[in-house]
Design a protein around this nucleic acid. Sequence first.
RNA 1: GCCUUCGUAGCUCAGUUGGAAGAGCAACGCAUUCGUAAUGCGUAGGUCGUCGGUUCGAAUCCGACCGAAGGCUCCA
Length: 596
Amino acid sequence: MTESIEASVDLKTLERDERLARMRHSAAHVLAEAMVGLIPEAELGFGPPTDVGFYYDFRLPRALTNDDLLVLERNMKRSIKRNHHFLMERIERDEASTYWGNQPFKLELLSELEDENITQCSHSDFVDLCRGGHVNHTGEIPPFKLISIAGAYWKGDENNPQMQRVYGALFETREELEEWEKQREEAQRRDHRKLGRELELFTFSEDIGQGIPLFLPKGEVIRNLMESFVRQQQEDAGYQHVWTGHLVKKSLYERSGHMQNYESSMFPPLVDGETEFFLKPMNCPSHMTLFNATAHSYRDLPLRFAEFATLYRYEKSGELSGLTRVRSLTQDDAHIFCLPEQVQQEFSNSLELIKNTLETYGFSDYRVALSLPDSAGKYIDAPELWEAAIQALRNAMEASGLEYVEEEGEAAFYGPKADFIAKDVLGREWQLSTIQVDFIQPGRLGCVYVGEDGQDHTPVMLHRAVTGSTERFLGVLIEHFNGAFPLWLSPVQVVVIPIADRHHSYANSVQAKLKSEGFRVDVDLRSERMGAKIRLAQLQKIPYMLIVGDKEAEANSVSLRVRGSSSAETQDLGETQIDELLTRLLNERESRDIGP
RNA sequence: GCCUUCGUAGCUCAGUUGGAAGAGCAACGCAUUCGUAAUGCGUAGGUCGUCGGUUCGAAUCCGACCGAAGGCUCCA
């Protein structure tokens, strides 16, 4: 056996990320060791570290079960206790080929190694082809937990065979691991699919179809408020709202480039004789058609068309998920036709709109990704237009003082994108808003304006969505607020709770008073005890409970109970005069307060 | 679409090796009139996702399909 070529490391001197990566990668080795112990015929793929732990891909003669995870975990812990040293060594190619002779995936990896710097790592009796990056010995692997079994394509390519992937979570301390598990459970508790059912916001039905959410009355109230909010802001910012229906002829999408680039994500066409109609998967061609309906002078620009449009996208069945990935969605979409020199100002205006909106919902922490094309992609071939668009977008972002990271290969087929990725209260990231610069489609669809020089010119088009899709954004909001919406968004803002039957008429009068101010108010007239009514209101996460009995009816007041910002915490604010209550409610509603 | 798991009342779930479909909550009815998170009693509710197969007999075993979950792939 050759000598170790990996120097021993003092973990304490490493950056946290590097240290964790080594620990996680080492744990993956130990997982593979345990798997070979459990199923000797296991074919090994590879096992990298992840954001929360590690995984290892295997091809196995049988499906793994959750019981297998327990066995694997136990065996891993045994190996860890024995402080096996990780030994890196260099090996000759033909020696490696012989050694890995019956491991097809390892042979494939081996054949892809360009140079002769072939290394493998052993600990205990287990050897793995590996480029390195371990802790010194298995005893340095901190607390971990095997969490799930999943299918995964070899090398992430769907044309490759499917492997079984075992995921593990690993952190430096027991506390961090437990914290992570708690976060995970909290996320499950807040799952918008569960809350959507409990709060009667939306549902799905096999009779309607996969990925097509149906909104119950309370869910529709929220949708409507979300859209009204954006609509009002857009009107203030000089947008004009338009409406372009649901069906579009194939020929338009052929000219825009969508047929060539997007057909697989569109529902099959509706055929009428010679004509094929498609359900609209996006609005840009429709809005450009609207633009072309009238003649435009450079003086008209920028022209901003906005639409709350229902779009249909044929997402593959396995990709659907609650409200966050659907087949019918409502986009708060807009297209801004402008002069090249207006791009920067329009970008900045859109950014302002997006910022205001996200902050109103309590998303103050977000990052921006600049999505660029790569050489491999399906991007429309017009290098100088791409270059112009990317330059314009970069300039606009820098002028706005935005920090951003560039991501190659993520652009739309017609242009680069600036995507806004916001963090929710649990620290999870969601891609919500987007601004895109398009130098290509307007020319393809013959959009022109008459310039100062009396000649026709092609406008630049900005695509821009604020909340993205109403469905997806609502799904994120439900989890963000844990179903306890701020007053302005709550489907039921106030519930009046009479203590006994003799208080019903006073309760009704309180309801009428608040309703006349435009509040959404229920009265609980059931023959139940007050405690039961309060409990129901709490579970429904209604912001304000007004309890009325003899005292209150006498004094023209209510006993005020506030739901509180978190689901568990409530406040009894005691007796409050109706006028005082109204002032409070009006302020809270107008300011769209999201609480502490 | 692919891998794995799952589908029993409106919801959450029990249902032993195949042998008469259950509970709690919700709903409905009656009683109760109550002071800050569940009043009591009663009634009703199911082609066990669908279709087919094995069996004397299927919620239970097998197959196909539909739907869901966790991943993978994809997301203009």
